[in-house]
């Protein structure tokens, strides 16, 4: 994988997409073979170095019952920079939502504090993305980030993604292939192995697993008429 490119991992459930990211971030180290980052084996990295390289938005990202500001600031706990937080918020499209809250960024979320606010699924998702944006890591990984979103919000996030992923390595894990189209390079994983690789057009021409999946999804949206 090259720097500053936008990658997408696609594949059916259980194909190994999430496992791959766990290997990258050093969560598992009982694998065979070699993973190199900048030519250096990741086993040689300190765990803290490795952690600093990646910002991950997990499928089941954590919804911390703390203030909105702290939720975002967790992305980079050692440096509190209001300006960067503000930028992350507007990039993630949360600015208006937060603006409407009487306590703004200091609003407590969840049910732990009295008066705590519960966000909707989409708002939480954006908050998790804002957290990843605030993280100064070089590689951002988004694991199925739009699963719980409505079509409009999903579409917005894809567009936002196109915007924010410029100039930074991004790995986008998805099985909604519409989103994969945005990627510079799509990696199709099947049965734990790399099955196909290329951009959208190349893969469609290849007529393999990717093309088949894309057709299946597209067929939902074709009018029977």
């Amino acid at each position: 994988m090259k720097k500053n490119l936008h990658y997408a991992f696609v594949g059916i459930n259980g194909a190994g997409k999430t496992t791959l990211t766990k290997l990258l971030t050093g969560m598992y180290d009982n694998y065979e073979g070699e993973i190199r980052i900048n030519g250096r084996n990741i086993r040689d990295y300190e765990l803290s170095e490795l952690k600093a390289l990646f910002a991950v938005v997990y499928q089941d990202f954590a919804k911390y019952s703390i203030t909105i500001r702290d939720n975002i600031a967790l992305g980079d706990v050692n440096h509190l920079d209001e300006e960067r937080i503000g930028r992350a918020v507007s990039l993630a499209g949360l600015k208006d939502t937060i603006h409407m809250l009487p306590q703004g960024m200091d609003t407590y979320l969840g049910k732990i504090k009295e008066g705590g606010l519960d966000l909707s699924g989409g708002e939480w998702q954006r908050l998790a993305i804002a957290r990843a944006l605030y993280n100064p890591a070089e590689v951002r990984i988004l694991d199925e980030p739009t699963a719980a979103l409505d079509p409009l919000a999903e579409s917005n996030i894809y567009e936002m993604f196109g915007r924010i992923s410029r100039g930074i390595s991004t790995i986008f894990i998805t099985h909604r292939l519409g989103a994969a189209k945005l990627a510079d390079n799509i990696i199709v994983i099947n049965d734990g192995a790399l099955a196909e690789q290329g951009n959208h057009e190349e893969l469609m021409k290849m007529g393999g697993i990717y093309a088949e999946m894309f057709e299946s999804q597209r067929s939902w949206y074709q009018c029977e008429a």
Partner: peptide
Amino acid sequence: SKLYEAQEQWYREVLV
């Protein structure tokens, strides 16, 4: 129709 279009556009492109 608004929701439908938003989702459908990602698949709309003419293929092959």
